[in-house]
């Protein structure tokens, strides 16, 4: 899944920020600290042009966090602990925001630029590509079955297996085969040197946002 725009940050910066937010989030212990941290990262994500992704991710992560927090509250009767749980889900959601804005093609190119073997960069590109393909294939097969008069019932898992799972597996295998063939027949070879049509360069904005994130995170850790 890729929600990015032309203004997305450099893919390696997106990866760095995702990991950085996840790890630094683990160091935030106090509720106030976590709250300010989330607020700060929201500002960073907005500055990076990821407002729409933020909205979509929070639509999924906030209800999940609320549910887990409710369960945690019912078990421990600790309100502050439950609120921290919600906030931690928020931090997890924020890491996803940056990951979802990685353009797979640019990522593959930037990995090549830092001399990562093309075999690996291409594998990453295809893996990224496969997530929306999987989603699309599930949608198409479900729709195609509906058209053939199949009705899905939760009490009949065997039907899901036969009507959804099997065609999906066969289709995925076919796509993998064709894709692998298409890559080879279009000249890909690990033994040959390739060129890069476009270079993905770091911009001043990338450096500024990375610097600001690191500085802000350290400040929150020190001040609160």
């Amino acid at each position: 899944m890729y929600y990015g725009t032309k203004k997305s940050l450099h893919p390696l910066i997106n990866i760095f920020l995702s990991i950085f937010i996840l790890i630094s989030g683990l160091f935030m212990k106090d509720l106030t600290q976590i709250f300010y941290y989330i607020l700060f990262i929201n500002v960073i994500a907005s500055l990076s042009g990821y407002l729409l992704t933020l909205f979509k991710v929070f639509l999924i992560f906030i209800p999940m966090g609320l549910l887990i927090a409710l369960i945690s509250y019912l078990i421990s009767n600790d309100l502050s602990g439950s609120l921290i749980t919600i906030c931690r889900f928020g931090i997890l959601g924020l890491t996803v925001v940056f990951s979802l804005n990685i353009n797979p093609t640019d990522l593959s190119r930037s990995l090549n630029q830092i001399h990562c073997p093309r075999k690996i960069s291409l594998a990453i590109l295809i893996t990224f590509r496969f997530i929306p393909v999987l989603k699309q294939e599930i949608g198409r097969i479900t729709e195609a079955m509906k058209v053939r008069g199949v009705k899905f019932h939760w009490w009949n898992p065997l039907q899901y297996y036969q009507v959804l799972f099997l065609p999906l597996i066969i289709r995925i295998i076919n796509i993998s085969d064709t894709l692998a063939l298409s890559i080879e027949t279009r000249g890909f070879s690990v033994h040959k040197k390739s060129s890069f049509y476009k270079k993905v360069l770091l911009t001043k904005r990338d450096v500024f946002i990375t610097f600001l994130t690191i500085l802000g995170t350290i400040s929150i850790l020190i001040i609160y």
Partner: peptide
Amino acid sequence: EAQIFNLQVEDEVAFGCENLGL
């Protein structure tokens, strides 16, 4: 459809040429 793996047309067209080292 199964042969395509890039997001943008120019990237897909460029793929083979990149492999030829152009």
